[in-house]
Design a protein around this nucleic acid. Sequence first.
DNA 1: CCAGAGGTACGATGCAAGTCGTACCTGAGA
DNA 2: TCTCAGGTACGACTTGCATCGTACCTCTGG
Lengths: 105, 105
Amino acid sequence: MPDDEGHPTVEEMRLGPVLAALADPLRRRVVRELAAAPDGTARTCSSFALPVSKATVTHHFRALREAGLIQQVARGNSRMATLRRADLEQRFPGLLGIVTAEPEE
Amino acid sequence: MPDDEGHPTVEEMRLGPVLAALADPLRRRVVRELAAAPDGTARTCSSFALPVSKATVTHHFRALREAGLIQQVARGNSRMATLRRADLEQRFPGLLGIVTAEPEE
DNA sequence: CCAGAGGTACGATGCAAGTCGTACCTGAGA
DNA sequence: TCTCAGGTACGACTTGCATCGTACCTCTGG
């Protein structure tokens, strides 16, 4: 069962929601940028400078979080997002590499 | 440029449409069944016995075809569908394996 | 030749998704 | 303390998607 903030466990990750989350180019961009950074890198939602409103940013990060792609932890004022790299590699080996290999859109 | 029937070339395959096509469980089921069969296996749309109407089946196969996942060739009365296994492995290595590894839904 | 099966095309419908504005809450910092 | 930036919640709107029925085309088999 997902926790209070909607993070599924590794076993709870489903391919359908994961692929649906990655079908959106903005969300793939977030995953790509996190994957390009050192493992464990935590960034705020706003640091990605997505070309949409704040409300829409929240919407996209929820989709990523509930699919299991990222983890969000409250850190003071903001919520830092980290890529669940090891979990993803265990559950869907190679998927992250495919997203990373995609050229900028 | 895609051909008359909407098949993209390997270079034209885009991750977004491919992931969007695979986000649907019915379409993943088609890909899984084709991937489980010997390479080159050609099946008719109706042979998958999808639990939807004929019109919807056509819709799903078009999505798969235009994303580049399958190839459809007219064979007499029907259109045989084959998995573009080698093309997919070249363009998105490992993706097919991830879909295949998914348990029946 | 004709009936039927396999598919497509088109229009309609219902629902989910992406988007936004606004209001609101909560820490950080002046 | 007060202001502001980071996020969330909610409602509204629009677009896209999955779905269907129906009509239609085209082969194949009797």
